[in-house]
Computed example of a mutant assay.
Amino acid sequence: MRAAVVREFGGPEAVRIAEVAVPEPGTRQVRIKVAAAAVNPVDAGVRAGVFGGAGKTLGLGWDVAGTVDAVGEPTAWRAGDPVVALVPGLAEPLGAHAEYVVVAADAVAAAPASVDAVHAATLPLNGLTAVQALDLLDLAPGASLLVTGAAGAVGGFAVQLAAHRGIEVVGHAREGDEEAVRALGAARFTAGAVEPRSVDAVLDAAVLGAPALESVRDGGAFVAVRDGVLPRAERGVRTENVWVRADGARLAELVRLVDEGVLTLRVAESFALEDAAKAHARLAGGGLRGRLVLVP
């Protein structure tokens, strides 16, 4: 089968299409025939060597939408089931940017019925990151939350999920994104500094760090979405990173919210798998509102 891989670190040109063996599912695993797979900043990090792995062939792709092709018993999934899943891209030699991918059965959820596979492929990584970050913040309805990077993929899901929980969201993004951020459910919008100690918590999707922490009240909470990037804790503010993990049951909840119209799935552009390097170049160009998606 064909797969997008990295054998030497570098820019978008380091992404190669290779012929590799079709993976076989083991016990409690499923093989998915990939219909679509999103391209995320973490893929650019793998390509650039941020996570190590020199001298190895590294697969790319954390998000997958497709159909179950084969199963390793015991599992309730059956061939032909339309599904979505989070693929642990840093733990496997082959990721979702391929014609087939194998994942743990408990990482899988039935695909949304209301959208196509290209849109469905944008949900797992960013949706799970957002909901797991909100779980860490543990805010009650009526609490106030600053979401930085509110127009981006993780930030956009966080705005929608928090608003759905009855949380008052302050969306932080560029001036030109105000209409889009408010449409996602933000009660307030800002493109500049936020008043110090004015919100109960921050979900820092834009990795602003210390300036965003200043907006949290004493004893509030701060969660960053990039591993290991945390400002120094102060004033009793609890600070944590969200370490996204595969969770098929939680992903199924997000799928339900998609089908209920609570969550919007945004696609900026789709590319053929053969054009994975072009997709990486487009990602590097920035300014995207929605995910890039590869289609085998």
Rank of each mutant, 00 (worst) to 15 (best):
V87Q: 09
G261V: 01
T27G: 12
P231I: 00
G209Y: 02
H164R: 15
V170W: 13
A70K: 08
G171C: 01
R289H: 15
G287S: 06
D106Q: 02
A249R: 11
A111R: 07
V159N: 04
A162Y: 11
D81I: 04
E269M: 08
P93D: 13
V207S: 13
K33W: 06
S215E: 08
V15N: 01
V237A: 12
R78C: 06
G152N: 14
G192W: 08
A180P: 08
V30A: 01
D218W: 02
P231S: 00
R282N: 06
G287K: 11
A140Y: 07
T122F: 03
A65E: 09
V71R: 05
L203C: 12
A121H: 05
E253H: 04
L208T: 09
A96S: 15
R245S: 14
P93L: 11
D275Q: 15
P93I: 15
A143R: 06
K56C: 03
F222N: 06
A212Y: 07
H172P: 00
G45S: 00
L257P: 07
V255D: 00
A14S: 14
V30C: 03
A143F: 00
L94C: 10
D200E: 07
G127A: 07
L86V: 00
A252E: 02
G45H: 00
V30L: 03
Q29R: 15
A272G: 12
E274P: 08
L213Y: 13
E179V: 14
E195H: 02
R7F: 08
A109Q: 02
A191F: 07
G236E: 07
A162S: 04
A183K: 09
D116M: 04
A38Q: 09
A36S: 13
P88D: 12
V84T: 05
V5D: 06
L161G: 04
A4R: 04
T67Y: 03
R266T: 15
D63R: 00
A186C: 03
G49A: 12
T27L: 13
H172M: 10
T129N: 02
Y100M: 03
P211F: 08
T264C: 05
G59E: 10
L86G: 00
A85R: 02
R47A: 06
V258I: 08
D81K: 03
A153E: 04
S144D: 10
A206T: 05
R182I: 09
L90V: 06
